[in-house]
Design a binder for these strands. Structure first.
Lengths: 126, 126
DNA sequence: AACAGTGTATTAACCACTTAGTACACCGTC
DNA sequence: GACGGTGTACTAAGTGGTTAATACACTGTT
């Protein structure tokens, strides 16, 4: 567990993003337990409340489920989990297309750039 | 002149982004004059200091040139202007490829999604 | 019962950004 | 020269979101 924080976005947002990536990659699956608020905070060297805020939002989004004082677990709702992946992808696609269209880059050029750039860089694994 | 502000990013950043888009699209060309700080602030209903901050950064980036008490003008340096466009494109491409690779979306899938999405939405003009 | 661990809630402090209020120097025009 | 416009600079206050500090309630274990 380690997150490369940028100092542009709020930490709790980046924490959420981290878990979404883990889910989208399949590293976190239905029912998996995740660290307690305090433990996560300790690992990431952030404030427990920041961890709490991230967890709270994930709870509200249905990503995780917390009962009694059991450790929080990834939801069993497979649709939600698939949704995470799809949303990340849709978001990336929309943003890219919007950017590229806003400055009138032809589709062909955009495609070529992506192809080149995709092959250039090494795989991103954890 | 009108900008659709979001309340996520600082206003002065969005102002800069706006001018970069205008340049990238060719709507703003070398030597074109841009509104005075006070006029821009008035039009966009923002504080003159916020406008000033945006202009100051654009000046430091070499995007605009200000002399004496003439209205600021877009730089005559064609390389800089081309650079703006290229940077916007590179940024979009990098971000997209990073996102998509981080969750292991195959190149083919990514390309297909972009193609579809690109054709779906109408052109974005001002 | 004491303890250590959980989640949760509340309040205060912090911080970047924005805004406000002035002020100064410069230049064209009337 | 007065005036209105420009750019620029500085300080102070306000604002909203983020983070920090602390406390509380609950539960399983010893």
């Amino acid at each position: 567990m380690n997150i490369q924080f940028n100092n542009r976005d709020p930490v709790y947002i980046q924490v959420i993003q981290h878990f979404k990536l883990q889910i989208a990659k399949g590293f976190l699956e239905s029912g998996d337990v995740i660290p307690s608020r305090r433990e996560l905070a300790s690992q990431l060297k952030i404030n427990p409340n920041t961890a709490q805020r991230a967890y709270k939002e994930m709870e509200e989004e249905g990503l995780i489920k917390t009962e009694k004082n059991q450790p929080s677990k990834v939801t069993h709702d497979q649709d939600v989990l698939r949704g995470v992946r799809n949303e990340l992808i849709d978001e990336a696609v929309s943003q890219f297309v919007d950017s590229v269209k806003s400055i009138n880059v032809p589709l062909e050029d955009a495609m070529k750039l992506i192809e080149t750039h995709y092959k250039e860089k090494g795989d991103s694994n954890d």
